[in-house]
Nucleic acid binder design. Structure first.
Lengths: 201, 201
DNA sequence: CATTTCGGATGACAGGTGTCACGGGCAGGT
DNA sequence: ACCTGCCCGTGACACCTGTCATCCGAAATG
């Protein structure tokens, strides 16, 4: 009997996944949480062996939650199950210590198999995504560029971003200009969108 | 026995919802589709009585799919089940003839009840969302403003938008300026983001 | 030790952007 | 007929933005 923890901020999806996985005779959902920062405690308390982690969660995202699990409970394996197959996500999830990466539009019957393989110590990674994340390579953005792009995501003017990070407007424009070049965009909003799509933020 | 159709582009969520709902003794999932434009045909072929529709789907979105169902199969009721509780979505879904609107972070056990109520001819709407959609009111955007905002979503410069819709740059800037005023934004990217959040696009 | 890279900053410049005033045409109400 | 609202366009203006050159100090890399 494999003991599972589910982490997903959407209660309906969480409950539905629990129903799906409980149908398998060798799987048992022993804990469910809706926030990333509750994963480690819940895993410890429930004695879970495999954790299914969504990336988009309040408190702590699924990738950082996988890293926390790796650190606090090294025996527990984690499988990232997320909506967006952004190449950068795959790389970051694996680097964070996750044992698998599956997108939410894979067939439902394959999920249980993925769980079993992860539990057996194997790596499970969507082959298309693995290829994509290899050709894309890691993020070329510097720390500041990444930070400023996240602030540019909502379309704020340069002045607002500069005020928020306590930098001069000129510096902000320089960093964003570099980011625009690296993403191949022509405006900072486009650069922010592209960077997010690739999982660089 | 209530006959259900599930429409969601994420196969994993679709299968999980099917597992969840099949646990109920009075419910039966008789069809599953991953595209909005397959809903009507599948509903007709399967004799579904209630359709659960996600909004974000390829081919045809869930709201337009509800409208198509209303037109082609008036006896079939539809329940929109979606990730984003955007106020504008609720209004548009109801206007399109949907009998209910539920967000994906409602507790899993409530879903079956929502289905039963919709099947019984009742309206099911998340109370918080209903209130929000009332205070927000309908979209104040004109047709052109809405269209240009969707093109501005990805951060394209005015020149690119003007070329795409065959308008002069000045006209595009005028429409976008009006949209910026109506959304309370300061840049077109911000206006586009706000409009999307409210379900105006 | 030298070089490179990064963060930070300034100044300048061309071009993009948001706003406003104004004009015209076309549909739908009263 | 009149008014209103939407659509389309022009021109002008101030301001914002993206780019580039240039500088500095710190840290990592060779």
């Amino acid at each position: 009997m494999i003991r599972l923890l589910l982490a997903d901020d959407q209660a309906l999806v969480r409950g539905a996944l629990a129903a799906l996985l409980d149908l398998e005779s060798d799987l048992e959902v022993v804990a469910q949480v809706g926030r990333g920062d509750e994963v480690v405690d819940a895993a410890r308390a429930s004695g879970a062996e495999v954790c299914l982690l969504d990336i988009e969660m309040p408190g702590l995202n699924g990738i950082d939650a996988a890293a926390a699990l790796r650190r606090e409970l090294p025996g527990v394996r984690s499988l990232v199950v997320t909506t967006f197959g952004r190449p950068g996500y795959v790389r970051r999830a694996i680097e964070a210590g996750a044992s698998g990466f599956v997108v939410k539009d894979t067939p439902a019957r394959q999920l249980a198999d993925a769980v079993r393989r992860v539990h057996a110590g194997l790596r499970v990674i969507d082959p298309d995504l693995a290829a994509e994340s290899l050709i894309d390579g890691p993020s070329p953005l510097t720390g500041r560029e990444r930070e400023l792009l996240t602030y540019a995501l909502d379309g704020s003017p340069v002045s607002a971003i500069a005020a928020r990070v306590h930098l001069s407007e000129g510096t902000v424009r320089n960093h964003l200009s570099a980011a625009i070049g690296k993403t191949g965009a022509t405006t900072r909003s486009e650069a922010a969108r592209i960077a997010q799509e690739r999982g660089w933020l």
